[in-house]
Design a protein around this nucleic acid. Sequence first.
DNA 1: GGTCACCTTGACTGAACGGTCAAGGCGGTA
DNA 2: TACCGCCTTGACCGTTCAGTCAAGGTGACC
Lengths: 209, 209
Amino acid sequence: MAAADQTEDRRLTARGEERRRQIIEVATRLFATNGYHPTSVADVVEAVGVGKGVFYWYFPSKEALLAEILRSGQKARRRVQRDAIAEIDDPVAQMERGIRAGMEWMASHRDLVTLIRFAATEERFTEGLRKGEDIAAADATAPLRRAIDQGLIRDADPDLLARSIVGVTQHLCATLIHADPDSDPSPVIDAAVRFCMGGILGAPAPTTA
Amino acid sequence: MAAADQTEDRRLTARGEERRRQIIEVATRLFATNGYHPTSVADVVEAVGVGKGVFYWYFPSKEALLAEILRSGQKARRRVQRDAIAEIDDPVAQMERGIRAGMEWMASHRDLVTLIRFAATEERFTEGLRKGEDIAAADATAPLRRAIDQGLIRDADPDLLARSIVGVTQHLCATLIHADPDSDPSPVIDAAVRFCMGGILGAPAPTTA
DNA sequence: GGTCACCTTGACTGAACGGTCAAGGCGGTA
DNA sequence: TACCGCCTTGACCGTTCAGTCAAGGTGACC
């Protein structure tokens, strides 16, 4: 355990960094297309065009590679979303911009959305995933809470609202944009934003309980 | 290929039907808990307490078992949803009841939700899955279209609305109810219904494009 | 008691997997 | 030139897996 992460503090040259990046890129595509388990390490190194030892020079295990892909993906999406809402004051406008930015990011990183959804189905990966999702939910919770306090949107659990938004954007991205990668994602993005804003802003009380 | 489905038209006694049901039940739980690939056929038959040959008496392959689990699960959910809205006239009320019924079904069949979400991440299973999801979306599309025609809800692509609803309900079920199986799902269900009805009924036009 | 179709057993097979390693190349520095 | 640390090779290992099969049990019906 203690020495298992020898590959982590390895000092890489520019060439090494490039190789590492290349493995991550190829593996992400293969994992998302054929599945994580059906894709062998041999498949990855063959697609890259190198020997098997190269893989284990840069990553301690196949599982660690997936964990890194997930971690860096979640981190990148968070940064995009935070940057998108940084200079906005109105919390409702913040939500709208944040949803749109998140959806745009997902649309151009569909493979990562697939992998995140896969990881959520296997207990071995859910813990590492939950941390990132909790952070993402917390990011959205702040403006939601402010909007509720200011009476701009209906009173509801901000966490449930945030996770509802994730559900809509992730599913639309995975189902529709993924189905036809060449189609223009913007109508889907617009629809997702409209739906989410409607869900947040509120609607007449349910007629039945 | 032609004779590969010999197990399908096998004539089963009551005992055989029971055994088959038992394998499906155990496998569903194991697949959802530990993942489809990490769960071996040996794990399944051991959990059932029978020899390995029993598995291949009832199912031609591990993959076919998962396909059947998915198929029957989607079918069951559809039936529940259709029954729930059968005697309702108002299309908006139909939507609300349908969403609630679907969510309640998912909450009590969490393992199946997990498996459906897993299957969506592997190309080998997506085709069989899409068929069921298209049907489910089409079921929801009909009342949505009527509601739009009657001016009861905002004008939008019914298919996108339907899939947004699936996104919210599935994700909330998988994330929150799954996280703590013992907690009361009804607040989450209520929140999902509220969010979705808000998304359908509409909200002020976006302030930015 | 005999027969037959349904059901069960569990050792076995061939293939594939994740991961290892001894060996060698390669490029920068002195 | 010699050296050294980064990078690469690919045969190899132990294990595990999906799926097979010859053999045997079991119960219903004649």
